[in-house]
């Protein structure tokens, strides 16, 4: 079953890539943004599996985006691999420091405290005139191993990279969740004290998850920055982080593909609401969110599970 599913993920990835390249550009753009956000939400889902909901993933999303922006704009590094490497390293270092403090907290305090950190970054960026304050700045077109596709090809390049990242990181995340430390996360959610009795370190489990989630969020931010061509502090604002939680809840935590699919659907829903009801799109989003919480407590993935007639998993 594992290998089948893996193969399927690959096929799905290829299909998205092919579809993305064939689709009208506005749709493939939407897909790329959704892939970026999907990666952030994937990290969030890893945390949620351990019962922790971060309202501050915007922090790393923004860090990843700004690293990409600063490298392309000020250091003239445009290689997408170098940029990714840099944003992962920066975010991991920051997460390793903040995590020491944050991973002592649980539940709503974890949520609020992580939000506070991302708001501090927001405040810092607003004060920084060299980085364009609230206006942000533009990101130059990326290249890959010396190949620079120019403005027309750049979005296709980012799309391809994004799809590759989503598929490979999705598989990695899946393997992680099915590993011992992955299951330890669920043990943290269910009962921390029992985990400690069994000889596991709750702090270590949470800390590692937090860092992984941060790296995923930074990658998502980098993808978004490269495809949209612009970064601003709004990415660290609490509403951005709230959106990620929205998407995570929409997809559910049952499967690593859920956040990605939810991200695509969310972007579609939002742009659709925008086009149909320019005055009341927030209301549409609100009702959609309520409907999901009321009728699909385990997210959209429960549709899939219901369809399969399998025993529904208990999730948060």
């Amino acid at each position: 079953m594992k290998t089948k599913s893996l193969a399927l993920l690959f096929i799905l990835g290829l299909a998205i890539l092919a579809g993305g390249l064939l689709l009208p550009q506005w749709m493939s753009y939407l897909f790329t943004i959704a892939m970026g956000k999907g990666l952030v939400v994937l990290g969030l889902v890893l945390l949620m599996r351990a019962g922790l909901v971060s309202f501050g993933q915007g922090l790393y999303y923004c860090v990843g985006a700004y690293v990409a922006g600063m490298l392309t704009q000020f250091a003239e590094v445009t290689d997408i691999l170098l940029i990714l490497l840099a944003s992962i390293s920066v975010s991991v270092v920051i997460a390793a420091i903040i995590g020491l403090l944050l991973c002592r907290y649980r539940e709503i305090f974890f949520a609020m405290f992580s939000m506070a950190f991302s708001m501090i970054l927001y405040g810092l960026l607003v004060r920084m005139q060299v980085l364009g304050s609230t206006d942000g700045f533009n990101v130059a077109n990326p290249s890959l191993l010396g190949w620079a596709p120019g403005p027309e090809g750049a979005s296709d390049l980012v799309l391809a990279v994004a799809v590759f990242l989503v598929v490979s990181l999705g598989i990695l995340a899946w393997r992680y969740l099915n590993s011992l430390s992955g299951y330890a996360g669920e043990a943290v959610r269910e009962n921390e004290i029992r985990l400690e009795y069994l000889g596991g370190s709750v702090f270590k489990v949470v800390y590692v998850k937090y860092i992984i989630a941060a790296a995923l969020a930074a990658i998502g931010g980098t993808v978004t920055a490269l495809v949209s061509g612009h970064v601003d502090p709004e990415m660290a604002y609490w509403t951005t982080s709230g959106e990620f939680v929205f998407i995570a809840l929409m997809g559910g935590t049952a499967h690593v593909a859920a956040p990605i699919i939810a991200a695509v659907l969310f972007e579609a829903l939002r742009t659709y609401a925008f086009a149909v009801a320019p005055y009341t799109w927030q209301m549409i989003l609100g009702f959609a969110l309520l409907a999901i919480i009321l009728f699909m407590p385990s997210g959209l993935w429960s549709l899939v599970e219901r369809f399969q007639n399998k025993k529904a998993r208990k999730t948060t």
């Binding site: 709503i108 949520a111 709230g242 927030q282 919480i293």
Partner: peptide
Amino acid sequence: RDEVVMILVTYAVLLIMED
């Protein structure tokens, strides 16, 4: 329901009430 779910429920209420 979970506290975090309740945050999102009230967030939905906020979106609806805003409009």
